[in-house]
């Protein structure tokens, strides 16, 4: 039997789609989220559809002190860890209420970095495994409209890049995923251009393929690579005057 795939943030739309994708390939699945009771229906669903074993685990990304014991109590060490955890706090509210900003930064950077660091040590020692972090194109350049979110994702992207550098010789793959816009709960109600917006399923497919092909960094829709090249390239004096 294959070693399982662990999904951190498994109640999210992306987490659910990723679980379906890997279960369809016959991987056993470990689902982790803060409210573990909400994972029970997904467990049943994956088991009936794909006949793979599924376990559920309580995981709070902000409770970093519990992360080491979280890893220890897993019944089996996963082959692949996919961290989907994240949130998009309201930028305007964050500017006024910094505790909100802080929670956002901890959820998008600190927590994911801590848990993946701990897994990295385990994986490095045993010499195989894959760590996947869902970061964001918003981390490529800070913008007035969401720089608390963006800066945390920038941190996470840099963290993943460093981790990949460190683990390059150990046989552990580190994959950075930059999804661009995705139709999820987080973006519900926003007017998003359909050519730039992926379905959660597309993200799941992209991740699956990227792991098979041993990729390092992927944009889910290729067009985003070029959009971000452009956005990074705009000189600061001009950038300041744009509303983005």
């Amino acid at each position: 039997m294959r070693a399982p795939v662990l999904i951190l943030g498994a109640t999210s739309d992306m987490g659910r789609a990723i679980a379906q994708r890997f279960a369809a390939e016959g991987y056993p699945i470990q689902l982790a989220a803060r409210q573990v009771s909400r994972l029970e229906p997904d467990k049943a669903d994956l088991e009936i559809r794909y006949g793979v074993p599924v376990s559920v685990h309580e995981f709070d990304v902000l409770a970093v002190e519990t992360h080491a014991s979280f890893i220890q109590q897993l019944p089996e060490q996963p082959a692949i860890v996919i961290c989907v955890v994240g949130c998009m706090p309201d930028q305007k509210a964050c500017e006024q209420e910094l505790s909100l900003a802080l929670e956002g930064m901890r959820t998008n950077y600190e927590g994911p970095a801590v848990i993946l660091s701990l897994f990295a040590n385990v994986f490095e020692q045993r010499g195989f495994g894959t760590l996947v972090g869902i970061s964001s194109v918003a981390g490529e350049r800070g913008r007035a409209s969401n720089y608390f979110y963006g800066s945390a994702k920038a941190g996470f992207t840099a963290f993943l890049s460093g981790l990949r550098h460190r683990l390059a010789k150990s046989g552990v793959q580190v994959l950075t995923v930059l999804p661009g816009y995705v139709k999820t709960r987080m973006t519900e109600g926003m007017k998003l251009p359909s050519r730039l917006t992926a379905e959660p399923k597309e993200v799941a497919n992209a991740i699956f393929t990227a792991i098979e092909k041993k990729k390092n960094v992927i944009y889910v829709r290729p067009i985003w690579r070029w959009i971000m090249v452009l956005i990074r390239w705009i000189p600061e004096p001009l950038f300041k005057r744009l509303s983005l």
Binding site: S12, Q35, V85, G86, C87, E188, G189
Partner: peptide, 11 residues
């Protein structure tokens, strides 16, 4: 992610 949230509607 904070939940439960009131779902946002769209036209």
């Amino acid at each position: 992610m904070s939940s439960p949230m009131t779902p946002r509607g769209s036209l």
